[in-house]
Amino acid sequence: MTVVLDPTSELRPETRERVARPESLNGLTVGLLDISKPRGDIFLDRVEEKLTGLGANVKRFKKPTFTKPAPVDLRHEIAVSCDAVIEALAD
């Protein structure tokens, strides 16, 4: 993994701005990120059913552990393969 130094004034956050909220989910790919908390998958299974019913394509992702942020590679994979993401927290 390459780490670079920020060449800017750092007055703005490093993360890029969010894309505009889509008008409809029809035909879009929606990522579901399971953060690996117990039973989160049951909740997301139901969300997937609902989204598929709305015409969305669903891709499932899972963090290795809920105790740490998602690895940068996983975030990149989600960013390049999805139009929208739902992150689920269950407990």
């Binding site: 993994m1 130094l5 920020d6 060449p7 590679d73 994979e77």
Partner: peptide, 16 residues
């Protein structure tokens, strides 16, 4: 300076 991590699948030059 703030460190910016690039994903391993990201092309470094494209990321810039």
């Amino acid at each position: 300076s703030r460190r910016i991590e690039l994903a391993s699948l990201e092309d470094d030059i494209e990321a810039m």
